Simulated assay, not measured.
Amino acid sequence: MAKYRDIADDIRQKIKNQEYTFGQKLPYEYVLCMSYHCNKETMKKALDILVKEGLIIRRRGRNFCEGF
């Protein structure tokens, strides 16, 4: 499986387990990249999946959890 899918799955699970709650700001993309040991493009793909699923919204400079 592609790394970006693994990252999206992990973040999705954290949202489901309420480690990230509704309206909470997610860590900066750079911090997420460091946490998951990936590059910016990989993280962008992972976050784009979550946006399409309606779990997060992206605003310039920040990402917000929409929750389940």
Score class of each variant (00 low, 15 high):
50 L>E: 01
7 I>Y: 00
35 S>I: 14
34 M>L: 15
29 E>H: 08
33 C>M: 12
46 A>E: 10
8 A>I: 01
68 F>W: 13
66 E>R: 15
49 I>Q: 11
46 A>H: 01
40 K>R: 02
66 E>M: 09
64 F>G: 03
14 K>W: 02
38 C>A: 08
23 G>F: 06
50 L>H: 03
27 P>N: 07
2 A>S: 12
15 I>L: 05
62 R>A: 12
58 R>H: 11
39 N>L: 13
42 T>N: 05
19 E>T: 02
9 D>M: 01
51 V>Q: 10
48 D>S: 06
30 Y>I: 11
61 G>A: 09
10 D>W: 04
54 G>A: 15
49 I>W: 03
53 E>G: 05
6 D>F: 03
3 K>E: 08
66 E>T: 10
26 L>M: 12
18 Q>M: 06
27 P>I: 02
46 A>Y: 03
5 R>K: 14
2 A>Y: 15
33 C>F: 10
13 Q>E: 04
58 R>M: 13
59 R>N: 13
61 G>K: 06
55 L>I: 14
67 G>W: 07
44 K>M: 13
34 M>I: 05
20 Y>P: 06
37 H>L: 09
57 I>W: 02
13 Q>W: 03
57 I>P: 13
58 R>F: 08
19 E>W: 02
56 I>Y: 06
28 Y>K: 07
55 L>P: 08
52 K>H: 09
49 I>A: 12
68 F>A: 15
40 K>M: 12
45 K>G: 00
62 R>K: 06
23 G>H: 08
17 N>A: 08
12 R>G: 01
33 C>E: 09
20 Y>W: 08
51 V>G: 12
25 K>P: 11
64 F>S: 10
13 Q>Y: 04
59 R>W: 15
43 M>Y: 08
2 A>Q: 13
26 L>D: 07
7 I>D: 00
53 E>K: 05
1 M>E: 15
9 D>G: 00
63 N>A: 14
33 C>K: 05
4 Y>L: 04
53 E>Q: 15
58 R>D: 04
54 G>V: 06
43 M>N: 00
48 D>H: 10
67 G>F: 12
60 R>K: 15
65 C>K: 04
10 D>T: 08
35 S>C: 10
64 F>L: 11
13 Q>H: 07
36 Y>R: 02
36 Y>I: 13
61 G>L: 08
12 R>F: 05
